[in-house]
């Protein structure tokens, strides 16, 4: 608001008679606020049902049917909602052992997930096992730093995706953890792991170039480590152009998103909501495009 006042004052001083109030009114109307709500999960690990009431750590929490209720409530009140997941959909309850990830994919489709990235446990039944389950997913898997060219997954994931909702252009890309030493070799086969920082920078720049209002990185790197291993906090710091990193892998419970200053000195948000679907993350963005360029033209 301060900036607008400044422009108005300047205009009046330099050429007051040229600037009619109606022109200003038009300028104001160009300043439109667009809203988008991001809902997110990570490391749901086949937890379809809530934890039992006698659970040692999370008694009675979680459950996909309840998550659906919450999501629907948000969809009823908010204009534009995106539902995202940061990986490790598989492994953790007998549902996975018995149905091999098919139920997880079916349910996420029913919940209306817009996109997910792959976690290391999503390789647990091998690439072919993942492909088999993925047939039941109507949402894309976004993997930017795994090169699947020499595997059966080639062409079945996407390096990035742009989703436009209510006039907001959201750019999504995904980075995963190094699989070697974490996942048995025969499970990920010829998947080539690419450097997360370089990959993230490349896709953030691309998405910015394509005019995205909001750039979101789905990450399964992990929140932070004591070692120098790449993490969400390090990625946020070492790149530019990303607004939000939705993380996973370390099962980190954050009460609120962490603010990290990026390479350009701009704040990036990093969030993660624990695991097993005991929480749903919600981040509302209000993007106000101030038609500064037009205002400046009026000034001349």
């Amino acid at each position: 608001m301060k900036r607008r006042d400044f422009i108005r004052t300047t205009a009046l001083v330099t050429g007051g008679i040229l600037v009619s109030p109606s022109l200003f009114a038009e300028g104001e109307s160009r300043s439109r606020t667009k809203k988008i709500t991001i809902l997110h999960t990570n490391d749901t690990h086949s937890n379809i049902d809530p934890f039992p009431e006698n659970h040692a750590k999370y008694p009675g929490l979680g459950g996909v049917a309840r998550r659906y209720e919450l999501i629907q409530q948000v969809r009823n009140e908010a204009e534009n909602v995106l539902l995202l997941d940061a990986g490790d959909i598989f492994q953790g309850t007998p549902y996975f052992n018995r149905y091999k990830g098919i139920l997880e994919m079916k349910l996420m489709t029913e919940l209306g997930y817009d996109a997910a990235t792959m976690g290391n446990h999503d390789f647990d039944i091998g690439i072919d096992g993942f492909i088999h389950a993925k047939q039941y997913a109507a949402f894309p898997f976004i993997c930017s730093n795994y090169n699947f060219t020499d595997t059966n997954l080639d062409g079945k994931t996407e390096p990035y995706r742009i989703i436009e909702k209510g006039g907001v252009k959201v750019g999504l890309f995904g980075v995963g953890v190094e699989l070697k030493g974490l996942v048995p070799d025969d499970k990920f086969g010829e998947t080539v792991y690419l450097d997360p920082i370089e990959t993230a920078q490349e896709y953030a720049a691309l998405l910015k170039k394509k005019g995205c209002d909001l750039i979101i990185c789905l990450s399964h790197l992990g929140y932070s480590y004591e070692s120098d291993k790449i993490s969400d906090l390090k990625l946020a710091e070492a790149t530019s152009g990303i607004h939000l990193i939705i993380g996973g892998h370390t099962h980190t419970f954050l009460d609120k998103p962490t603010e990290v200053v990026n390479k350009d000195g701009i704040t990036v948000l990093v969030n993660q909501v624990g695991w097993a679907g005991v929480n749903l993350g919600r981040i509302d963005f209000e993007i106000e495009s101030k038609g500064i360029k037009q205002d400046a033209l009026i000034l001349q």
Binding site: P50, L61, G62, G63, R66, R67, L70, L214, H243, L254, D255, K256, P257, L269, N271, V273, G277, V278, N279, L280, G281, R282, I283, D284, F285, E286, I287, E288, K290
Partner: peptide, 11 residues
């Protein structure tokens, strides 16, 4: 200008 509002919603 992006204004952000974040909630953690327990299930």
């Amino acid at each position: 200008e992006i204004v952000v509002d974040a909630d953690l919603v327990p299930v």
